[in-house]
Design a protein around this nucleic acid. Structure first.
Lengths: 149, 149
DNA sequence: TGACTTCCCATGAAAAACCATGTTATACCA
DNA sequence: TGGTATAACATGGTTTTTCATGGGAAGTCA
């Protein structure tokens, strides 16, 4: 299983295209869909990104709710309604929809930040600020990782 | 497995036709019926939509009720009785029946909202309200997805 | 005949495919 | 080990195709 690791900054051209870092593309190369799923983060001015497998997993878990139940509807609306499926072009680029660019404040550069199972897309400046903040949180709250099973 | 993802707003012309977003059409392109199934939602002023394959899944779930029980009768009547099967025309459009347009309050624009296995059709304004409500529900009820096995 | 539907065509905009280039990283070889 | 050939990558631009949308013609049913 590949993980999204490290950070890379790529240019957004005037059509809204941006190269997905090649080591991110390798992570999803074995999956059924050659591309990524993006949706606006509810917590930050950034985008959340996944491979298609992650979304399929979410879909499977949603099946454990009753059909047409309020719970299923709320979750599906929030998760799937705002997400976008973007295929790589022949050069490994994706076209960032206007709406998503605006949500994250992206103009001419995008920072791809690996976070293991998922990744995030920030403006380079936004990510610097976020990095400082999260580092401070980890230190001040003495955050640690839970034990494995 | 294709999933209905993201939201797209398309125009309804004066004949009642509306383009189904191309990425929604792709989801059902491999199925035996080139088109969608629609019926009025029981919970909201919107329409529920599926590919032909998902009707079987609904049928299976109905089997979990006792045969001839009131619940099964009620659900089967509303779901199967009120649903319509709409084929794509040569340009990928469907003709929304008057009755369904009225149920959802649709006049000149339709928002197609992807929800994974199914999708919904709203007025753009109706969906904005719905999106806020579902997001608030997810947050306030701490709705989360059950862990996979 | 008249409402409605299905099929067909036109058009502008958007997206996808294609091609070219400079730069960096990798592999290869002496 | 050093240096060179090769491949991969990010990036820009151009061309081709798809898509959404409007309108009209032909067909259908009551």
């Amino acid at each position: 299983m590949g993980l999204f690791l490290s950070t890379a900054v790529n240019k957004i051209d005037k059509k809204g295209r941006v190269s997905v870092p090649s080591h991110f593309r390798n992570v999803v190369s074995a999956l059924s869909f050659q591309g990524v799923i993006l949706f606006p983060s509810h917590h930050h001015a950034c985008l959340e990104g996944f491979g298609i497998d992650y979304i399929e997993e979410i879909s499977n878990r949603l099946d454990t709710f009753d059909l047409f139940s309020n719970e299923q509807d709320d979750l599906a609306t929030t998760i799937f309604g705002e997400s976008v499926q973007l295929a790589f072009d022949t050069d490994g680029r994706i076209l960032l929809p206007q709406e998503l660019r605006e949500h994250a404040g992206l103009t001419n550069e995008a920072a791809f930040v690996g976070m293991g199972q998922k990744f995030q897309i920030w403006t380079p400046e936004g990510f610097q600020a976020r990095k400082s903040a999260s580092r401070a949180n980890v230190a001040s709250k003495s955050l640690t990782l839970p034990k494995g099973q």
